[in-house]
Write a protein that binds this DNA or RNA. Structure first.
Lengths: 344, 344
DNA sequence: AACCCTTTTGACAACGCTGTCATTAAAATA
DNA sequence: TATTTTAATGACAGCGTTGTCAAAAGGGTT
């Protein structure tokens, strides 16, 4: 019924320990033995039992993904990216949606790690910025990789995947400036999220670089939602000196502003240009389509998982991971569409 | 460092087997013993090791969710619904995105079950209709719960959660008829998906019920995508006798049609009424907002998980699950918005 | 007090793997 | 060829639980 490592060993005519070695790609197994064992594995359609592996070894074959993001596309893409890497390397993924504001968040994460004996964690924003969470993980020596909006971070001892939101935001706003806009509104995402901060910095940088004075009136506080885009638009229209372009912190906000603008009879982009961020499906399903910055979310996630698993494996095989944490960088790319630009 | 059941036992002054009994809520433990043990557990912040539990017991504490759905909102809602139930009952969730068309699909699913020793599976469409998959699961006696678009199914031996798409579709189309429409177009989702079939049946039923003749020209084959909605609109406009209303198989299609309609200068709903299905965020972010049918995806998912876990537990405790599989039913609700109806 | 029956608890062997260390086979050296 | 070194394999003890079965502790009856 259930095929175990011993069945494979019997069929291959070796000890079950040798089969274990083959499964784990350990060195010092004769190539022809490897061959024999692999044949037996294939023949019996054998699958190693994860629970047993986890129990027997100190390290386990499961990592966790902790997220709290209202954006379904982002989560799905992240998840798929991590999963792809997990499958490649024979790891399992335990997903853990949570609420960033929960007072018991840290405790909750630790419990999950213990229960499932996770070998490591991928933290996406805003959890990737929470000192309390990181402290606890450090204390328990649970490896984690952070996905960070920005190009650097103070806590450098753990690997990070940096997404250069600031540069991308600057590119978007410079594109708007290149279209002749000088009065450009900004609608932020959730307060306290680093992505919000970075995108705002990029916005300001672009203006400053081109000698356009900053105007606090043009910077609207919002959240990552459609409604926020509607509301932000109204606030900007209520100004005496109205903007001719809006840079919204993500596509959902942008599509809310776009919605409101068209409802108010404004033509986009001739009367008002609007740009988003993220390149989500939303950005393609508005009219006109949204200019945005394309985040390669799946790749970012895969990279994070790869970094994490690499470290776990290196620990397993005894090789020490290099002292300097391994950082990687991604640069969202400007995608110009009809909401900011009309080709001649 | 690592707290085990034995530490708890020592602190509580009982054997570790008794602690195990308390953890599993087994009968025949004296209440005051339970109390003592629970105190010790709390004090040590003990978490049972899932891997060990899975290994030791025939049944495990992990279920799987198999899906192939391009719709991120649907997947996230399903996932969250299942997870909520899992957390309640101390189960883990292993997610398995896949491609319904993959030739090795069945094999792949079986492998996952073996590897993670899954106690059961939640199958969402279209996997919930695949005979090959179900046969293999039956053979290995792996419990599963199906989420089915429809009100009944031939394979009745396993529990199903039925979502009455047909009735909901009929309600939508009858709403359109009540608005005076008699020439109503239909744009389908992916061919072969049961939801597509059911929604088409509901559409036809409504027409027939009101003595409106069916016209094959009005039934456009599409897929569950925005582009398909754009294309479907064009096909319907190309007809000699154009429809005055469109019922699209989901909100994404509907929003595509809406997009195309407005691009063509049509006013919605006065010149063309458009309805979708699903009540996804899309339906709120169009202008005008979409009439649709609200599927309680999260609840559906929780119900499916609850049914599955119930069965697993009953097996564990020896009580036989009732011979007749447990079926439950959900009825998506009509949500009327501005894309089909103008309040006076 | 002696008996039986029920409730509650404990001892100990699995579960299917990995880690450690001993052993054997093969290769290199003297 | 004898001897040392290295590569390849095997034996066996855990890992932290649950399952099985036996033992102990109570509770009624006679």
């Amino acid at each position: 019924m259930k095929t175990t490592i011993k069945d494979v060993a019997k069929l291959a005519g070796v000890s079950f320990k040798t089969v274990s070695r083959v499964i784990n790609n350990e060195a010092s197994v004769k190539p022809q033995t490897v061959e024999k064992v692999n044949q037996a594995i294939a023949q019996l359609n054998y699958q190693p039992n994860t629970a047993a592996r986890n129990l027997a070894s100190a390290n386990t074959y499961a990592i966790g993904y902790v997220y709290d993001n209202p954006n379904a596309y982002y989560v799905i893409n992240m998840q798929n990216g991590i999963l792809a890497e997990c499958r490649n390397r024979g790891y399992e993924l335990i997903i853990h949606p949570c609420h960033a504001t929960s007072p018991t968040l840290t405790e909750e994460i630790i419990k999950m790690c213990k229960r499932s004996q996770l070998a490591g964690l991928v933290l996406s924003p805003p959890m990737s910025e929470m000192a309390g969470v990181m402290d606890s993980l450090d204390e328990l020596a649970i490896p984690y990789v952070r996905i960070v909006s920005g190009s650097a971070t103070k806590r450098n001892h753990r690997p990070c995947v940096f997404v250069h939101d600031r540069d991308a935001a600057r590119n978007i706003v410079e594109h708007l400036i290149a279209q002749g806009h000088t009065r450009i509104g900004f609608i932020s995402g959730d307060q306290g999220h680093r992505s919000t901060e970075e995108r705002k910095l990029g916005y300001r940088e672009a203006l400053t670089n081109h000698g356009i004075p900053l105007d606090r009136e043009l910077e609207i506080d919002g959240t990552y939602s459609f409604e926020s885009g509607v509301k932000g638009f109204k606030q900007l229209r209520a100004l005496g000196d109205q903007p001719t372009a809006i840079f919204a912190c993500n596509d959902e906000i942008a599509s809310g502003s776009l919605f409101a603008a068209r409802l108010n009879g404004l033509d986009v982009p001739s009367q008002l240009a609007i740009a988003g961020f993220e390149n989500s499906p939303f950005s393609l399903q508005t009219w006109p389509k949204l200019t945005t910055a394309a985040q390669p979310t799946g790749e970012i996630a895969s990279q994070a998982a790869a970094t994490l698993i690499e470290e776990i494996q290196s620990k397993r095989t005894g090789r020490l991971p290099s002292e300097v944490a391994q950082h990687t960088h991604f640069h969202p790319e400007l995608v110009v569409r009809e909401s900011t630009y009309i080709p001649d």
